[in-house]
């Protein structure tokens, strides 16, 4: 019962965040929303594991948390330099 309430709250939050991701207006609003969506997914997976009585799902959540972070930073780096390769190192600006 309590897991169900928690999971509904997480889904509602995800929907609110998706609205922000669609509205924008700047690209950074969208990245912020998607990053937040990722952490909500981790919570969703964790609570879902408990709801189904299979807490092994947490491993997926753990990996998702790491990939989400790497993904966000990668997108930001791409936004800033327009490149993911070594080109960035030769420019004056520091890394993200």
């Amino acid at each position: 019962m309590m897991f169900l309430v928690a999971i509904i709250a997480v889904v509602v939050t995800m929907l609110l965040i998706l609205v922000r991701a669609l509205l924008g207006p700047t690209v950074y609003d969208r990245i912020l929303a998607i990053n937040l969506f990722g952490t909500k997914t981790v919570l969703f997976v964790a609570v879902l594991g408990f709801l189904n009585g299979r807490p092994e799902f947490l491993d997926l959540g753990l990996i998702y948390a790491l990939i989400n972070f790497i993904g966000t930073v990668t997108v930001l780096k791409f936004m800033q330099y327009g490149d993911l390769g070594w080109e960035a190192a030769s420019k004056e600006k520091p890394d993200v």
Partner: peptide, 23 residues
Amino acid sequence: KLVFVMLFLLITSPTATHALARA
């Protein structure tokens, strides 16, 4: 495992937020 998830999120989320704000 829950502790590790929490620690990872507590370390990565401010870093991502900071990178975002700076960008």
